[in-house]
Each structure stands twice: as structure tokens, then as C-alpha cells.
Design a protein around this nucleic acid. Structure first.
Lengths: 343, 343
DNA sequence: AATAGCACTCTTCAGCGTTGAGTGCTAACA
DNA sequence: TGTTAGCACTCAACGCTGAAGAGTGCTATT
């Protein structure tokens, strides 16, 4: 939309954005002229900056301070200026080795991933697990824990495990539970968890099951078992945002932390980011998170072997090192996808 | 150790501590005289305060400010002054109903509990799950996820579930996995996870298993399965400490958050708190957490049906509302113990 | 032993000029 | 016409000062 910028203006805008990202301080005309070894005087730069301000790309906190990029400027920067850094060999190594620190099932891998993202970016790493309910059912199992108390374990093709404590009306013997399990495993073979749920509800209305006690019990119990909870979300590196000067103020921070404590709303909002392919960037008020606090979000989807979709990314200040964060998120998403797709 | 305090001094000390807890500001002699409707003038109070200061129970940030309780004073306060509040009906209701929000297995209950603690106390709630390895083995199960990839699910008597992704040397068919499971369930019946682990190692040296391929494979796999990860720890309400004026400073906060990000060290330290019965209180530098940042910890043990021990409590500033936090922690620990002991 | 009075200390805050960074404008220049 | 040098202007930041206020410690008094 704002492509009507001369090469020189673009260059200057880029310089300002990058300077500001590096220092977090308003950048003045002379700094730009010097730093960029443009063969331009500060006066000329000033003229250009005045233009850019008029176009809504810069603001100044007060008359005699330098200029600060607006969200619009970041948007423009990210869309058409930023020179993406390569992911370094060392970073690649870290991503891969962390991903592979296997042995902990899906949650373990994703948690490690969010930690890695946080370490490499120096911001907050976030991973949204692929929706459990959209995944294909693999196995259900009941274990008797005590009188009228059984533990239901539900496994999906991705290797995600959900377990649920169920209080039953009658006491069930282990052999009975095994039979129930066999029946249900058969019943739900090849369905997604959501479909499985529907199948169970259907089956409960079915004539036959109403008269077969075992069946009807099995269905009643499994109905609770598949009522899975909300999807998982992993956030690591929360302390890192305290490094950012713009969040040294307690009130602003509180806002952010509170947003993350209610993972529920968080989830909803983040899942919106999964619509498109490739790296998505949400700047400032574009982010689905707390709108007031200059926060940006760089995300990408990843895909599992059973074709469910998750999301991972980095949350940081709007003034974020996009040139390195974007490639890192991109690469990590690819690696995680690959890892989770290995049959 | 400091019982040599006249009733009047005790009264004054109590007033100061409670005032300071309420306001977070140095409290002056006249405030004490007024507030407590003691038939004493501020001058008299001043004399007493001078004594208390000499005894190391008070300090003043500077000459003309009021006095602040030292850690020693809090200790004394907690040991012999504090008038514990009753847990209100409403609080009890909240604790019980949250605990009972069942259906999510052990982790779910504990997570809810830490959230409740945080809500009721307005500080941070923390729960350390009972050690998985000390708990009694209940069930093991293998599920084939893909070529040479199986998911091991290990359940303990408490209803704690650990799952682990295992890459195997050969591919295993489902029936084979079932047989392995049966064999291992038999083998580890009634043992704790730690003992089970040893049993497996023993068995691997055993002549018979070396020649029976199924056995040897089963053992090799299960050996990985029981190599469980560190215990779980649940922390909720991190945002709440931002409400405390003493932590409005970013540097101090960062210290705390970082302590919590390395759950590993946290675990070690917290598990020390589990030694004794009843409510334990750690004030300031007594806490196993970050030593520098005026933090206190009020904890209590809870016990599960299979007699393993966990820990729960509240973390807040040294200047904490002990009179209400202590009863809350106590009551919650009792309730959780009871809930987890219902067979 | 308790208190009233008083001098003293130290923080906090508002007011105030100084400094320096940075701008906008204008006039000169290529 | 685009670029530059120069200059007046603005405004936050800083340090200083003096007054206000809170609170103490000491001493004389009851």
C-alpha cells in the first residue's frame, strides 16, 4: 500500500528501524547520516524524516527527540525492507538437537522446542500443540485405580496422551475394563477424536447397546474419557522479556503475564494464527494478545504425521530483531514438522 | 531464643509487623501509639523501639524514617505472636470445590490446587507432585506409533501417568507389545517404580531372559520406559507478585522469574521442605529460593493414598499476610491429602 | 518509669536554571 | 530543483537549592 517510497527514503527508514531495534532509543537525523555512511547531510535526512512522519511511518515522542518507527513502519520494514539473516550452523545444530531430545512423547518435544525458540531468539518461545481432537484416535485403555475409580488413557496418532480420572457408578473389575477397551478400540479405529466422540454418542442411542450392559457401561465411561480438555500450550522464557527496557515498568509487564495465565483465551487467539502457511508476523495491535503493550508475534505452522496442525513462534517487543527471529521460526517449524512426520 | 521480651514489647513488635505487612512502609512511633490505642505516648514507644532495634528485630532505612521488621522479627512474629485467622467458610468451599474438579488425573488436581492457593492468598501458589519414582507401580502399556516407534505409558498407584516415546531396534507388532506388557505388569506388581527399575536391571542379567528374545526385548524397552523424568512442579499466579510494591523493580523480579524457569534446581530445594510434618515457614534468607530477594515460603506436606509425599504452599514477599496464609496452606494440605487418600 | 519538649537528621518534592540533543525553517549553493 | 549549512527554538534530563514533613534521640520533668 505504501510502495510509493523513493529508494532513498526506504534506505533511511530501514536505517531508523534497525537503529531503533538495536538501541530502543529515538534515533536522530545525524545518527542516521553518520551510521549509514550515506553521502547525505543530516539536514537532508531531516527533510526525508519529516516526509516519513507525515506518511505515518515515524513519530517523535516530543519535539526535540529523535524519531521512533510506528507500527506501520515495522509492517513496511517486515514486508519489504528486512534483510533476513541466515540461520547459522550453530543455531541449526541447537534446534535439531533439542528437537531430537526425544523420549518424552509429543508434549516433551514441544516443550523443548519452545525452550529452544526462547533461547535462540532471546524472547519468549511459544508452542501450541496440534489440536488433540482433530487427531486420529489410536488407543484407549482403562486402568482401575481404586473402588469406582478408573483412569482412562487416550492416545492419538501423534503420540499425544490424555488421561482422565473417572468416577463410575459401579465398580469395574480389570478384566471387564480390558474387554471394554477392546470393544472401544475396535469401535473408534481410524476416526478422529471428534468423530470418535460422535460415534460414541450415536452408539449410545443404538438399540443393541441399550440392552447389553457391558456395552452401555463402556460407552458411558468412554464418553467421559473423550471429553478431552483444551489443547496444550507451552510458553518458555518469560523472564526474558524483563530484559527489554520497554517492559521494565511493572504495570505493563503485569498485563502480559496476566494474558498468559489465562491460557484459555490465549489459545483461542493463537489458533487464529494457524490459518495460513509460512511465517506469519503480527505487529503491535495486530497481535491477538494484549493490544496495548507493544508486543509482536512471529509464528509459523507445523504439521504432524497425521496431518494435524500446530503453531510455534516467538513473542517479543514490537521492537524485535525480526531479521534473525523470522528465519529461526521458519527453520524450527520445518524441523519440527519433519521430526513429527517421520513415520 | 528471644523470649526475653516484656508483654509490652511483644505487643509493640506485633503492631509494627502487622502495620508493615499492611502498608509496606516504615512504621513510626506515633503510628504505633495511635493505631493500637495503647495508653502509651509515642515517646515511650520510641524507647521500646530503640530496644527492639538493638536486639536486631527492627531496622530503620535511615534516621528519620520509621522502622522495618527484620527477618528475625518475622521469625519471632510467626513463632509466637501471630494470631491465626480462621479459614472462612467461603475459602473452604473454594478449596474443596477446586480440589474436586476431578477428571484430570493427578496432575490436573495438583495444578488446580496451586491455582487455588494463588487465588486465596493473592501470592504465588506452588505444588510439588509426590515423587513418581517412590510411588507404587500400577500398570505399563506399549502402543505402536509407527515403524520402530512405540509409546510407553507408565501409571502409578496415585494415578500419575508418564509417557515416553521409545525408538526401538526392531519393529514390534501390537500383539508382541501386548505380551510384553503382560509380562512386565506381572514382573513389577507391587513394587515402587524405583524397585521396578532395579528388578528390570536384575532380570536383564538373568540367564533365562538372555535366551528368550521376547523377554530380552521387553526388558530393554521397559528399561527406557521406567527411566522417568524429574518430578512435576506446578506454579500458578506468577503475575501476582507484581502487585507487591517491593517487586516493582525489574531487576528483582527477574531474579525470581529466573529461579522458577530452572525448575530443576527449584525441585531440589523445595523437596527439602518435605522433611517435617505440619506447616513449615521459611522467611527471607531461610528460603531455599533466591536468597537475595525478600521472599518467604509457607509450605505443608500432603500424603497420597499410596503414602508418597508431596508439598504445597505459597510463595510471597517476606512481608506476607501470614495470619491468613498459614491457615489456608494448612487446610489445603489436609484437603488434598484426604482427596488423594480416598481409595 | 513515663512523658513532653526540642533540636536534629534525613527524605521528598517543587522550583529553577543549565545543558545538550534534535528539530524546523530559511537562505545559499550546485 | 535538490542539497546543504546555519541558526533559532523546543524540550527532556540533570543537578542544585530550599522548604516541608516525618521521625528520631536526648533531656528535663512529673
Amino acid at each position: 500500500m505504501d510502495v510509493e517510497l523513493s529508494p532513498r527514503s526506504r534506505q533511511i527508514l530501514e536505517a531508523i528501524v534497525e537503529d531503533y531495534i538495536a538501541t530502543a532509543e529515538p534515533v536522530g537525523s545525524s545518527a542516521v547520516a553518520r551510521r549509514h555512511a550515506l553521502t547525505l547531510s543530516s539536514a537532508t535526512v531531516r527533510n526525508v524524516m519529516a516526509n516519513l512522519e507525515e506518511m505515518g511511518l515515524l513519530t517523535s515522542p516530543h519535539t526535540s527527540a529523535g524519531r521512533i518507527p510506528t507500527e506501520k513502519a515495522y509492517r513496511f520494514y517486515v514486508d519489504s525492507l528486512v534483510a533476513l539473516r541466515q540461520v547459522s550452523r550453530d543455531e541449526k545444530r541447537q534446534i535439531i538437537s533439542h528437537c531430537r531430545r526425544a523420549g518424552a512423547g509429543l508434549s516433551g518435544i514441544l516443550k523443548e522446542t519452545s525452550r529452544t525458540l526462547s533461547q535462540l531468539s532471546n524472547y519468549m518461545g511459544i508452542v501450541l500443540a496440534p489440536s488433540f481432537t482433530a487427531d486420529v484416535f489410536r488407543h484407549i485403555e482403562f486402568i482401575r485405580l481404586g473402588h469406582r475409580k478408573i483412569l482412562a488413557i487416550l492416545v492419538s496418532s501423534n503420540g499425544a496422551v490424555q488421561n482422565r480420572l473417572i468416577e463410575t457408578g459401579e465398580d469395574h473389575q480389570p478384566e471387564e475394563l480390558v474387554r471394554m477397551g477392546n470393544y472401544l478400540n475396535e469401535l473408534m479405529q481410524g476416526l478422529t477424536i471428534t468423530q470418535a466422540r460422535e460415534r460414541i454418542l450415536d452408539e449410545m442411542k443404538n438399540e443393541k447397546s441399550q440392552y447389553d450392559q457391558l456395552l452401555s457401561r463402556a460407552l458411558r465411561i468412554s464418553e467421559q474419557a473423550v471429553a478431552v480438555e483444551g489443547d496444550e500450550i507451552f510458553v518458555e522464557g518469560q523472564a526474558r522479556i524483563l530484559d527489554q527496557p520497554e517492559f521494565s515498568d511493572a504495570a505493563r509487564m503485569k498485563e502480559i503475564y496476566e494474558a498468559f495465565e489465562q491460557k484459555g483465551t490465549m489459545l483461542q487467539l493463537l489458533s487464529r494464527c494457524m490459518s495460513a502457511d509460512g511465517v506469519q508476523i503480527y505487529i503491535g495491535s495486530e497481535t491477538p494478545i494484549s493490544r496495548s503493550a507493544g508486543i509482536s508475534l512471529v509464528t509459523s505452522r507445523f504439521i504432524t504425521g497425521s496431518n494435524t496442525v500446530g503453531m510455534l513462534g516467538v513473542i517479543g517487543p514490537t521492537r524485535m530483531g525480526y531479521s534473525s527471529v523470522i528465519p529461526i521460526v521458519d527453520y524450527t517449524a520445518r524441523m519440527v514438522s519433519r521430526l513429527l512426520s517421520e513415520a
